[in-house]
Amino acid sequence: MKLTLQIWRQADKNAKGAFETYPLDGVSEHMSFLEMLDVLNEQLIGQGKEPVAFEHDCREGICGCCGFVINGSPHGPMPKTTVCQLHMRVFKDGDTLTLEPWRASAFPVLKDLVVDRSALDRIIQKGGYISVNTGNPQDANAVLVSKDCSDKSMDAAACIGCGACVAACPNASAMLFTSAKIAHLGLLPQGQPERHKRAQDMFEQHDAEGFGPCSQHGECEAACPKGIKMTNIAMANGDYLFSQLIWSPRTGPSADGG
């Protein structure tokens, strides 16, 4: 099949980017989207041009590295599919595809379609953990977890941190990501000791990174390649408000060192 690709090209973080148009012939419908870009890059290199930079690692839909916006849809038009798992058969011969990087002030473009998502890592550092004693591992079934909680927690834990929710959100909010992490740990007994402090600290880091507020549009849920639900946002909001209105978790080490 024959395609016209309009791709955002930007030399580095500080350069001013622009769209470039590339015609591409001989695309097999069995190729994945990234393989199609590999073919384009081979051609560009052959012509002595700079290949298109895009992030990728596993190409199995599990690492969360890949991702850009195809014709206004993060990860392309297939629901619950990362762009590395997207196949060219979903497009038609003669299609024009516009490829843009995730657009958010918290995700600066590093090059072409690659953005810096370390803001998400800093949110995780604020509370995406549980504290346990070191030493011998506990007996596997010592702490009981209800089936319901474990299911919901596992669903939230499916988040691969690709950033598609931010890309899709009209406000560039990372609330789906942040809430998935809060719910994933907050639903389990092991996550209880830090539950409300976690919501408070991760929410505050979310804002400090420059992500937008959640307007409950639902675009994040529709774009998420892992099917993370917005009900996580409601739960995280509840945890956050609880932390501010009722529980008041400690923010730093206490004065007496305890």
């Binding site: 309009q6 916006v69 849809s73 038009p77 657009r103 009209p170 406000n171 992500f211 409950q216």
Partner: peptide, 29 residues
């Protein structure tokens, strides 16, 4: 306050936008 924060969070708009889940009601708030 929220509108300002939202605008600051996406300084550069997309060339193509394809809404999937947001509604005319939510987008016109």
């Amino acid at each position: 306050k929220l509108l300002r924060q939202s605008q600051a969070a996406r300084p550069q708009a997309y060339k193509v936008v394809t809404p999937k889940a947001s509604t005319i009601y939510s987008r016109t708030m």
